[in-house]
Computed example of a mutant assay.
Amino acid sequence: MRNIPDYDLSWRKSTYSGGGDNCLEVSDNHPAALIPVRDSKTAPSGPKLTFRPEAWSAFVRGIKN
Rank of each mutant, 00 (worst) to 15 (best):
T15K: 10
N3S: 10
P44Q: 10
L24F: 07
F59M: 14
R2W: 05
I4E: 00
I63A: 08
E54G: 04
R52P: 00
M1S: 12
K64H: 14
A43F: 15
Y7D: 00
E25C: 00
A32I: 00
H30N: 03
L9Q: 06
V26L: 14
E25P: 02
Y7T: 05
N22Q: 15
S45V: 07
S17T: 07
A32T: 01
S17R: 13
S40H: 08
N22P: 01
D21K: 12
S14F: 11
N3L: 11
N65G: 14
D6E: 13
R38W: 08
P44K: 12
W56G: 00
P47I: 13
D28K: 05
A58N: 08
P5T: 03
P36E: 06
L49Q: 01
E54R: 09
V37D: 08
T15Q: 11
A58Q: 13
I63C: 14
R12E: 10
T50E: 07
C23G: 07
A43C: 04
A43V: 01
G19C: 05
E54S: 14
G20P: 01
P31G: 06
P31R: 04
N29M: 01
S27V: 05
S17E: 04
D28Y: 09
S14I: 04
S40L: 12
G19P: 06
A33V: 02
T50S: 14
K13L: 13
N22E: 15
D39A: 09
S10Y: 07
G46Q: 05
S57Q: 15
G18E: 10
R38L: 04
A33E: 06
W56D: 00
T15S: 15
P47T: 11
D39W: 02
R61I: 11
R2Q: 11
R2C: 01
D39I: 01
V37I: 15
P44S: 15
L49C: 08
Y16F: 15
T42Q: 14
N3W: 07
D39V: 09
P53F: 03
S45D: 14
T50G: 02
L24P: 03
S17C: 08
A55D: 13
S40F: 12
C23H: 09
A32N: 01
V26N: 10
N29S: 07
S27H: 04
T50P: 00
G18V: 07
H30I: 02
S45W: 01
W11D: 12
S10Q: 14
E54I: 04
P44V: 12
S10L: 01
S17P: 03
N65D: 02
D6F: 11
I4Y: 00
G20E: 13
S45E: 11
F51W: 05
W11C: 14
P53S: 08
C23Q: 14
F59E: 09
P36A: 11
P36R: 02
N22W: 06
R52D: 11
N29V: 02
R12Y: 06
W11G: 00
P36F: 06
Y16A: 12
G46C: 04
S10A: 13
S45A: 13
Y16D: 10
P47S: 13
R52G: 03
S57I: 03
N3H: 11
L34Y: 07
A43H: 15
S14K: 05
A58Y: 06
P36Y: 06
F59I: 09
R2D: 01
